[in-house]
């Protein structure tokens, strides 16, 4: 009995770290994999094809894409942590609703704080902050990872997936702003001599379909480099 009590106590102490974390160290091999995988072979956009909706909406210019990435990262890391903390308390029948409430609350918090202390950024993002709630990646990671893993691992998973999402978002925004408007972060980068020689900005790049096509090209390049990602049937 006494021994049993000790074990329980130890478990309480390491609420934030599962046993494996302890053995591996904070950034052990497995934990590093949680952070790095979403960048490459398990990218939320190009491999899992989640979060496409916001990838279309905010990749017209680089700046909103970057700010959106940071906001998504904050929301994902914290919602993953909170759900992971509550994972043994949440009644399984209403777990999706609970996840939604937590995500929505965090998004509103982010929005309110931006409005008070970073007013220009909040204007820049306008409705897209609210749309983080509907970002499939957030719900997807809560359901697939946070409900079954420890708090620290869930935090890493949130950061990792948000970074993978951010990477694609910024890449797409880079090409769309460059080819569509001849600018990067709002500054003219294509020299006037190009325009004088007959170069024209491609207005089509600014429209949503070109985001899909750009993501498609990234998926094509990724799969031709790593053939294991290609579905067999």
């Amino acid at each position: 009995m006494a021994e049993n009590k000790n074990i329980n106590k130890k478990e309480d102490l390491i609420l934030f770290l599962s046993d494996t974390d302890e053995r591996e160290g904070l950034l052990g091999k497995k934990n590093r994999k949680l952070l790095a995988d979403p960048f490459t072979d398990n990218n939320p956009i190009t491999v899992q094809v989640l979060g496409i909706c916001s990838a279309l909406a905010i990749t017209v210019q680089l700046k909103p894409a970057i700010v959106m990435s940071i906001a998504v990262m904050a929301v994902m890391a914290f919602s993953n942590m909170i759900i992971s903390m509550l994972r043994n308390l949440i009644p399984s029948r209403i777990r999706i609703i609970v996840q939604l409430v937590v995500v929505a609350a965090l998004v509103i918090l982010v929005d309110q704080i931006l409005r008070a202390y970073a007013y220009d950024v909040s204007k820049e993002l306008s409705v897209f902050v609210g749309l983080i709630i509907t970002n499939c990646i957030v719900m997807g990671r809560l359901e697939a990872f946070a409900l079954g893993n420890g708090v620290y691992k869930s935090f890493l998973d949130g950061i990792g997936n948000a970074a993978g999402y951010a990477f694609i978002l910024i890449l797409v925004a880079f090409f769309r702003e460059l080819l569509g408007a001849g600018k990067l972060l709002g500054m003219e980068v294509i020299p006037q001599s190009f325009y004088d020689a007959g170069y024209v900005n491609n207005g089509l790049m600014l429209l949503s379909p070109m985001a899909l096509i750009t993501v498609g090209i990234i998926i094509w390049i990724q799969r031709s480099r790593n053939r294991t990602l290609i579905e067999q049937n």
Binding site: I94, L109, R115
Partner: peptide, 30 residues
């Protein structure tokens, strides 16, 4: 389930209400 929902809503609602009220002067000023 009911108990969990009631507690969750109470916590979330008060946290949001508190933040909104606390930040309101800064937001209005902006």
């Amino acid at each position: 389930t009911f108990l969990f929902v009631v507690l969750l809503i109470a916590v979330v609602a008060s946290a949001l209400a508190l933040t909104a009220t606390a930040l309101q002067p800064e937001q209005a000023e902006n």
